Simulated assay, not measured.
Amino acid sequence: MAVRNCLVANDWICWEYVRSRSQELTDATVQHVSITAVSVLIGLLIALPLALLARARRGFAGPVLGLTTMLYTIPSLAMFSLLLPLFGLSAALVVTGLVLYSLTILVRNILAGLAAVPPDAREAARGMGYGPVRLLWEVELPLALPALMAGVRIATVSTIALTTVGAIVGRGGLGNLIADALPSLFKAQVLTASVLCVLLAVLADLLLLGLQRLLTPWTRIPARTLKAV
C-alpha cells in the first residue's frame, strides 16, 4: 500500500499515512468522542439519583456502592460478552458497558461532594425557608460541584480509554484502527490512533477542568480573602 511508503526510516512514524487517511482518522475520532460523551452523560444522569438515594436512605448506600464497585471490577471483554445477548453487535452494547463502568466513579464523587457541604450552609438555607428540593439544587449541588466535576473528569478519561475495547464489535472509534492494524503489523496506524486517544484524554481533561473552574469561581478565592470577608 502507498501509505506504507513512509518518509522516515522508523515504521512507527508515517506522515504520508496521516495525510492520505485523514478522513478515516477524523471519522474514527468523531465516533470515539460521540461514544464517550453519550456514555458519560448517561452515566451522570443515572449516578445522580443513585447517589441521592444512597444518601437519603442509609440502607441503600451499601448495596448501591457495592453493586457499582462490583461492576467496575468486571473485565471489559467479559462485560461486553455479558451484554451481547441483550444488545447484539451494536453501539448500544458499547455505550451500556461504558455507562456501567462510569457509575462507581460518579456515584462516589457525588456522595463525597454532598458530604463535604458545610452544615452551616444547610442550616442557613433552611432558616431562609428552603425546602428539600430547593436546598439540593440551589445550595448542596453547587457546593458539591468541585467533587462532582472531579468525578466527571476521571470518568471521562477512563471512558476514552475503555472505548477502544469496543473495536471487538466495530464500535471502538480509534480502537477500530488499532485492531485493524495489528494483524498486518501496520505500526504507523497503531501509533497514530494511540496518540490520538492520548490527546483526546488530555484535551477532554483540560476542557472539563476549565469548565469546573468556570462553574466554581469561589474555589479560586484566596483563603486570606475569605477570612477578611
Rank of each mutant, 00 (worst) to 15 (best):
A2R: 13
N5G: 08
N10S: 04
N10Q: 11
N10A: 12
D11M: 06
W12M: 15
C14H: 11
E16F: 05
S22P: 02
Q23V: 13
E24H: 14
T26V: 14
A28E: 03
T29L: 05
Q31L: 01
V33C: 04
I35N: 05
V38N: 05
S39M: 06
V40T: 03
I42M: 07
L44A: 15
L50H: 08
L53I: 12
A56I: 12
G59S: 03
L65H: 09
L65E: 06
G66F: 00
L67N: 01
L67D: 07
T69W: 11
I74E: 12
P75I: 08
S76D: 11
L77K: 14
S81M: 11
L83W: 00
L89W: 15
A92W: 10
A92S: 13
L93K: 06
T96P: 07
T96F: 12
G97V: 08
L98Y: 00
L98R: 01
L100V: 07
S102E: 05
L103H: 05
T104Q: 11
T104H: 08
V107Y: 07
V107K: 02
N109W: 09
I110N: 04
I110C: 00
A112P: 06
A112Q: 08
G113A: 10
P118G: 04
R122Q: 13
A124V: 12
A124K: 11
G127N: 10
G129T: 14
Y130G: 08
Y130D: 07
V133D: 10
V133I: 09
R134E: 12
L136K: 14
E140D: 15
E140S: 15
P142S: 04
P142V: 00
A144M: 01
L148C: 09
A150Y: 06
G151S: 08
V152E: 00
V152Q: 07
R153L: 05
R153N: 05
I154T: 05
A155K: 00
T156Q: 06
V157M: 02
V157D: 00
S158F: 07
S158K: 11
T159A: 09
I160G: 00
L162P: 04
T163N: 06
G166L: 02
A167L: 03
R171A: 14
G175E: 12
I178H: 02
I178R: 10
A181H: 13
L185K: 11
L185Y: 15
F186G: 11
K187V: 08
K187W: 10
V190M: 14
V190Y: 00
T192A: 10
L196E: 00
L199T: 08
A201Y: 05
A201L: 07
A204W: 05
L208N: 01
L208A: 01
L209G: 15
R213A: 13
L215C: 03
P217C: 04
W218C: 03
I221D: 05
K227T: 07
